[in-house]
Design a protein around this nucleic acid. Structure first.
Length: 890
RNA sequence: GGGUCUGUAGCUCAGUUGGUUAGAGCGCCACGUUGACAUCGUGGAGGUCUCCAGUUCAAAUCUGGACAGACCCACCA
């Protein structure tokens, strides 16, 4: 240990002084790269959920990275060849929208720029955003393999996307059709069903005079597109009218509608009659298909009334609504208007614009068609099986927490054909080319003249659905189609797929996790991952979502700057359970900074005050305290491993905190100041080393920094501690278990001193009757005297008389007296004893009631009964002692 | 309308398959310069585990119901 190193250990840990250098050291070591790791226990891979290249990372990302880094670091140390594959997501609509906003400031639009120029701008933006994100990921300490970084829109991923699209087309799973879709007039694009959000609003409900009917509608302007009227088949009121045609007076003249009977009509709502506008309502469109009703489109892609709407043409739907209602009122076509009608508006999840359902020619994935590729099953069925019982000879995908499996099944069961084409420019272009009546679907553009590629791009989830396997291809050439299947010819793919865990937020279970299962089972007949670990949302301290507009955002980089990465990471792990949201406050991070600093000082004490000694521990020289701490470490190692393997990260970190502060610092370290063990240097070196290893996945920076002070190696690649080593060193130790009583005795004495307000510098006398353990307790006399008990004279004998004017204490069978004499407040002491007596009596009574209960003694397991009997016995002896003491007092 | 989750100390949460006189962190109160640490230490107060009923020898834990809150899905024209 050089002097230089000692000087490095400042009084408090300053994260900023070390973090960046430590990360560089890790990177240069090559240990993030799986090529440099051995596969002693197997391969372990996590592909990082790619952050959107729209901006910067938030606390949610920081938490995600912390979880994944913990899993990766633990498995790396535990002997797995680990690969954590980083990447970013092009996030089609989100990114395009953002760039459109930016260029708008210069008075530009994407149309004024043209496709090519606009995409250049988006790429520039994406690149800049990507660099920021990469830096942030590093700041958080993520031990991912940057040499394999992927982007959802790069060449390799494009090859995968085009190939899978082609395969699906050939299998008839992808088709083009004119269907009513969710249309965002602002984004000018379709949206998938689950990209639509709902907001409750209070509007008006218009009751229209509609031929022979009166019916209610919230959207009178759609009357221009009505082609039918529907009633419920069992509605007696309208039975006679079903199947007949009626002439309806409209604002633009008369038109005919047919009356149809359909089960989807709610008899309770309104008058039980609903006007059918097949072009602008999903439900209506389905009804129209069932009954062969024609479709009349009246609203265009800008959300405006079309030319076939007479004088209303060119108005927005809202303007048209007002105008039409006014006209209808004049014509006497409105029965009445309900003012307080609560209903939900469909909004675009990206820009909150009201969705306009309209018919559009789009590409869809058929989720119900059975296909040979999936052994005669449909996408839907396969994806349900993958989580229910396993597919393709793989075990079922395990979702943590398991309750989300129910949500998954429910979503899958109700899944409709997935619209995958988007009318935006940024994204994977639909790999379809047209020439007159011909259509070509392929990985590359067809040869020959006159082919024009489809203008649309693919839903961003189409490409991110392939993320686990597309990222394991290192270059486009490794992806090919053979025998109607997708082949990935790479070492990484063979080694690491299916991946071990997908760690992500529960909020994208449907958006992403389900899509990955869809794409992977179809494309490569495999599951994408064996486990799914779902974390919750990071909320502010009041439980509200963090958002810029609310001003309640806690920025991870600010916190890292202020309190260090380790503290920030811990704040996101501790107190968080899978699938549940967590509240975060700056105070919490500050508290964990204190914990991290404690670890620093523990190490500082051992390294510079005690000194490092890596030589072998001689068992025969171990003191009772040494043995006790060794047993504790042994249990700690077992517990941490069990918790990490069981995804109980918070529990593991809490266990570590508890051990480090309480068992190790407050007790053992204090003990070493007075316990003259010849082995203490060695024991402390061993425990510190293993403690740093156990902490490392959670707090990588500080542990590596401390480690470098007494080791030449990198902690990052050290072997995970084994409890076996401790077990072999110690074997069964009676002294270790007895040592707990020494701690109890010391605590008891401190407690009495505090209760009787004995001044801290006042020395006292203590008498202990230790019975069978006299010899052992005597051997620990020095500790009892020194550890903040302020004892001047300590007498330890086997037994003796009840002392007068003394405060009594019991620890198991051991009796302790503190003859404090005049320091004792006898009134208070009497009260305390009476209280104790009462409690003990109640307690004993409850145990005896139990023991007398035959049903209990008959049914309860023997060990439970034995425990109760033991409790009864010790309470009895305590009772009699307390009674004796009380008598003495009075 | 269908579903999921949550309700334990002032606050944030643990409590694995039913058997602990119910735990931690923060906060609070009292005290403290004892070989690293005031970003610290010692001690303490504080809970009828939301309520009701049931199963059981035994319930914070299992079942049913009520109340309160969060979220997801569907969607009514």
């Amino acid at each position: 240990m050089s002097k230089e190193n000692i000087e490095k250990l400042a009084k408090a840990y300053i994260p900023k002084a070390y973090e960046d250098a430590v990360y560089k050291k890790w990177e240069h070591s090559g240990a993030f790269n799986s090529d440099n790791l051995e596969s002693r226990k197997g391969d372990y891979c996590i592909v990082m959920p790619p952050p959107n290249v729209t901006g910067t990372l938030h606390m949610g990302h920081a938490g995600m990275l912390a979880y994944e880094d913990i899993m990766i670091r633990f498995h790396r140390m535990d002997g797995f060849r680990t690969l954590w594959l980083p990447g970013t997501d092009h996030a089609a609509i989100a990114t395009q929208t953002k760039v459109e906003k930016i260029i708008k400031e210069d008075g530009l639009t994407r149309h004024s720029l043209g496709r090519e120029e606009f995409l250049k701008k988006v790429d520039e933006f994406a690149q800049k955003s990507h660099d920021t994100i990469e830096n942030q990921i590093k700041k958080i300490g993520s031990s991912c393999d940057w040499s394999r970084e992927a982007f959802t829109l790069d060449k390799t991923r494009n090859k995968a996307v085009n190939s899978v699209f082609k395969l699906m087309y050939e299998d008839g799973l992808v088709y083009r059709g004119e269907r009513v879709v969710n249309w965002c007039p602002r984004c000018h694009s379709t949206l998938a069903d689950d990209e639509v959000e709902y907001e409750e609003v209070t509007g008006k409900l218009y009751w229209l005079k509609y031929g022979p009917f009166v019916l209610a509608t919230a959207r009178p302007e759609t009357k221009l597109g009505d082609t039918a009227v529907a009633v419920h088949p069992s509605d007696k009121r309208y039975k006679e009218m079903v199947g007949k045609d009626y002439e309806i007076q409209g604002v633009l003249g008369k038109f005919m509608v047919k009356v149809i009977a359909d089960r989807s009509v709610d008899m309770e709502f309104g008058s039980g009659v609903v006007k059918v506008t097949p072009a602008h309502s999903l439900i209506d469109s389905e009804m129209a298909t069932r009954h062969g009703i024609p479709t009349k489109k009246i609203i265009n892609e800008d959300g405006k009334m079309m030319d076939n709407c007479g004088k209303y043409a060119g108005m927005t739907t809202l303007e048209a609504r007002e105008a039409i209602v006014e006209d209808m009122q004049e014509m006497g076509l409105i029965d009445h208007i309900e003012e307080d009608y609560k209903h939900k508006l469909s909004l675009c999840y990206r820009c909150d614009t009201v969705i306009e359902p309209l018919p559009s020619l789009q590409w869809f994935i058929d989720v119900n068609k059975k296909t040979d590729k999936l052994l005669g099953k449909s996408i839907k069925e396969t994806c349900v099986d993958a989580v229910k019982k396993g597919v393709f000879k793989k075990e079922k995908i395990n979702i943590i927490p398991s309750r989300f499996e129910k949500n998954y099944f429910h979503w899958m069961d109700n899944l409709r054909d997935w619209c995958v084409s988007r009318q935006i420019w940024y994204g994977h272009r639909v790999p379809v080319w047209y020439k007159d009546e011909e259509i070509f679907v392929g990985v590359e553009a067809p040869k020959g003249e006159g082919w024009v590629q489809d203008e649309d791009t693919l839903d961003t989830w189409f490409s991110s659905g392939m993320w686990t396997f597309s990222t394991l291809a290192n270059k486009p050439e490794q992806i090919s189609i053979k025998d109607g299947k997708l082949y990935i010819d790479s070492e990484d793919f063979r080694n690491f797929h299916p991946t071990a865990v997908l760690e992500t937020g529960y909020d994208i279970l449907f958006f992403w996790v389900a899509r990955m299962i869809i794409m992977t089972t179809y494309a490569i007949n495999d599951i994408p991952f064996k486990n799914v670990y779902l974390h919750g949302l990071v909320l502010d301290e009041k439980g509200k979502k963090m958002s810029k507009s609310k001003g309640n955002v806690i920025d991870p980089l600010d916190m890292i700057d202020k309190y260090g990465t380790d503290a920030t990471r811990l704040s996101l792990i501790i107190g968080s359970t899978p699938g549940n949201d967590m509240k975060l406050s700056e105070e919490k991070i500050e508290g964990l900074r204190n914990m991290v600093n404690k670890l620093w000082n523990i190490s500082r004490y051992i390294i510079q005050t005690i000194g490092i000694d890596k030589s072998e521990i001689k068992k025969e020289n171990l003191t009772a305290a040494d043995q006790a701490i060794i047993v504790k470490v042994q249990d700690l190692i077992d517990e941490i491993k069990k918790d990490l393997e069981g995804y109980r990260f918070s529990k593991a970190a809490e266990y570590l905190r508890e051990f480090s502060r309480n068992d190790f610092a407050d007790w053992y370290l204090e003990i070493t100041k007075y316990d003259h063990s010849t082995e203490k240097k060695k024991v402390l070196t061993l425990i510190l080393s293993d403690l740093l290893k156990l902490w490392h996945p959670f707090a990588p920076f500080i542990t590596e920094t401390i480690w470098s002070n007494f080791n030449d190696s990198l902690l990052l690649t050290e072997k995970w501690p084994s409890s076996k080593k401790y077990r072999e060193l110690l074997g069964h130790s009676k002294e270790a278990s007895l040592f707990g009583e020494i701690i109890e005795i010391i605590k008891g004495i401190r407690n009495v001193r505090a209760a009787h307000k004995v001044a801290p510098d006042k020395k006292i006398e203590v008498v202990i009757y230790a019975g069978e353990q006299t010899e052992f307790i005597r051997s620990q006399e020095h500790l009892i005297k020194k550890l903040k008990t302020g004892i001047e004279k300590l007498t330890i004998t086997e037994k003796g008389e009840c002392l007068k004017n003394a405060v009594p204490l019991t620890v198991g069978e051991i009796e302790i007296y503190l003859p404090l004499g005049s320091l004792i407040d006898s009134k208070k002491e009497k009260l305390r004893l009476e209280n104790e007596l009462e409690q003990a009596e109640e307690y004993l009574a409850s145990i005896e009631r139990k023991l007398k209960n035959q049903a209990f003694t008959k049914n309860a397991p023997a060990e439970v009964i034995a425990r109760e009997e033991k409790k009864a016995a010790s309470t009895k002896s305590k009772l009699s002692k307390t009674k004796a003491l009380l008598q003495q007092l009075s």
